[in-house]
Amino acid sequence: MTSGWHHAFAVPAHGQSPHLRECLASLRAQTVPSPVFISTSTPSPWLGALAAEFDATLVAHGPNRGIGHDWNQAMAAAPATWVTLAHQDDVYLPHFVAETMRCVERQPRADLVMTGYAELAHRRTWTWTPMLAVKRLLEEQAFLGREAVSHRRSKRRLLAFGCAIPCPTVTLRRDRALGLFREDLKVDLDWDAWLRLADGPGAFARVRRLCMLHRIHADSETSDGIRAGVRAREDRAMFERLWPAPIARMLARLYAVGYEAGKP
């Protein structure tokens, strides 16, 4: 069941991120206001005070069972028709909700809406990196100038050469997304989720405009996964679902090189 809210932010919070305050401030600065729900398995007085400061609802769950469980719990905590899973280290520009919901109105068959984004690293905003360029190219070859794609082949083409759907930009139709994320994956749980959504009847839609800033830093889950070799293993498993084994191995190797080349 959802409430009367059309859109909400769900923030999976863990520990004491030094960037969470900036994230919450950006959610409160939206030109179209949306309620904010902070979901955590590590509640603390610090987090409670931060939630109160930004008029966010704090929802605790437990035990701590990993990132996939955190994301599923966050989606469940936000009772709205559309939910943005806002990553605690990222910044959402003031027009994010307005642009996303205008797209929803134009694309009533959509299950997923993604937006343009830039990266935050080394105290700078990067609107172009090799990895960003590759992801934008993958978007273009799937969307072919359209705002939305609904055919299974087009949606899978968006994901066939890597995860071209940037998770922090995504807003999901909540009734399609409850329990969506696999809890045994550590890095590619978003890629896996989008691939399963692609097999369904709903459309994927996009807002071309840059609407948020994704922070790249050494303590992120993705960075940890790359260092530990988890990303390479999960990438290969994902490619093997899409391609014959020899091609999957080649693409996984190219992707690993791309992560190094794509760093700002």
Rank of each mutant, 00 (worst) to 15 (best):
N64H: 13
G66Y: 03
G66E: 03
I67G: 04
H69E: 14
N72G: 02
Q73D: 07
A77V: 05
A77K: 02
A80M: 06
T81K: 09
W82C: 06
A86H: 01
D90R: 07
V97P: 04
V97T: 08
A98P: 02
E99S: 06
T100M: 02
T100W: 00
M101V: 07
R102P: 02
R102T: 11
Q107P: 01
R109M: 10
R109N: 12
A110S: 05
A110V: 10
A110H: 05
D111Q: 09
L112S: 03
L112V: 14
V113C: 02
T115S: 14
G116H: 01
E119L: 05
H122C: 06
H122F: 14
T125E: 15
T127G: 04
T127R: 13
T129Q: 04
T129R: 12
P130S: 12
P130H: 13
M131E: 12
A133I: 12
V134W: 13
L137Y: 02
E140N: 08
Q141I: 15
Q141G: 09
Q141L: 14
R146F: 04
E147A: 06
A148C: 05
S150T: 08
S150Q: 15
H151F: 10
H151E: 15
R152G: 02
K155T: 08
R157N: 14
R157S: 13
L158M: 11
F161E: 11
F161G: 07
F161P: 00
A164C: 05
V170Y: 04
R173M: 05
R173G: 04
D175T: 13
D175Q: 15
D175S: 08
L178M: 13
F181Q: 04
R182L: 10
L185H: 06
L185V: 12
L185A: 10
L185Q: 11
V187N: 11
D188E: 14
D190K: 00
W191C: 07
W191D: 08
W191A: 10
W194T: 08
W194F: 15
L197Y: 12
L197S: 10
A198L: 03
D199M: 14
A203L: 14
F204D: 07
F204P: 12
